[in-house]
């Protein structure tokens, strides 16, 4: 495979970044969170998550639905049929 300048530079920087991050992670252990746990959970995670989501993250869920709506409208807008499309295309 032939490398061009950008790929070579990308590879170099990426390897550099990998080395830096590995060294960093090896040297600095990640602390435990500062606050206290929210729930005393004994249930399985799967059940807990769906309950938690509906109880506590309902706003996010609605917003997520809106994003889906927005993305759908966006795709529609880009894929909209345009009668004069071919005419304008040749610029």
């Amino acid at each position: 495979m032939r490398f061009d300048g950008i790929e070579a530079a990308g590879l170099t920087v990426a390897i550099l970044a990998v080395i830096v991050s590995c060294v960093f992670i090896a040297q600095n252990s990640f602390p435990t969170p500062y606050s206290t746990p929210p729930l005393k959970s004994t249930q399985s995670v799967g059940q807990e998550v769906s309950k938690f989501m509906w109880e506590s993250r309902s706003l996010d869920l609605i917003a997520q639905a809106l994003v889906l709506f927005g993305a759908a409208v966006g795709c529609l807008a880009i894929l909209r049929s345009e009668k004069d499309e071919k005419k304008v295309k040749s610029e």
Partner: peptide, 15 residues
């Protein structure tokens, strides 16, 4: 105008 270069700049700026 090359997207790859832009992303490279992204990484460099980050570092």
């Amino acid at each position: 105008g090359i997207l790859n270069v832009n992303m490279l700049a992204f990484l460099i700026g980050f570092l």
